[in-house]
Amino acid sequence: MTPLSVRAYLIKKGDVSIRMLSEHFQIDMVMSQLLIQFWVKKGRCVQKVLCGDCQVTCPSQVYYRWI
């Protein structure tokens, strides 16, 4: 798993959570977070909270989308 393989997966899947990325690439969630952070900092990927019913954000409801 490298930044380019993560990008390909994000483009293919649409909304991707950290957990999905870890399971797909068989890496731990901390590594997935680092790779996602790389694209977020470059402004190529945005964080989305799909649950809009509460003020509280839980990690399982945070997704990342390629823009």
Binding site: T2, P3, L4, F38, K42
Partner: peptide, 17 residues
Amino acid sequence: QESYDVLIAEGFYHTAA
């Protein structure tokens, strides 16, 4: 097509894997 910073990161992550 890729910018250099992506290629640099790609090199490090690829070698680590």
